[in-house]
Amino acid sequence: MQVQVKLFAFFREGRFKEEGRELADNTIVGQVIDDLGIDREEVGVLMINSRHCQFDTVLRENDILAIFPVIGGG
């Protein structure tokens, strides 16, 4: 299935802003994050089609997954 992945802030560094990815059916969000080499501890907000989701949320055909890092400085 095809899923659109959008990265934000420093997650884009050395990766991409937005990319279509071909995934096996029933792939979960956490698997995409692991495949991108993103440490789960650095992940803040996760959204599918502008709705909040979790690492174990199952992706569906044509979903748009947005991954934001934790931003914590002041």
Binding site: E42, G44, V70, I71, G72
Partner: peptide, 16 residues
């Protein structure tokens, strides 16, 4: 709680 989920750890020290 949404911006800082339980597993979240900020990079330390942050670059600002």
């Amino acid at each position: 709680a949404q911006l800082f989920p339980l597993q979240a750890q900020a990079l330390s020290p942050p670059q600002v």
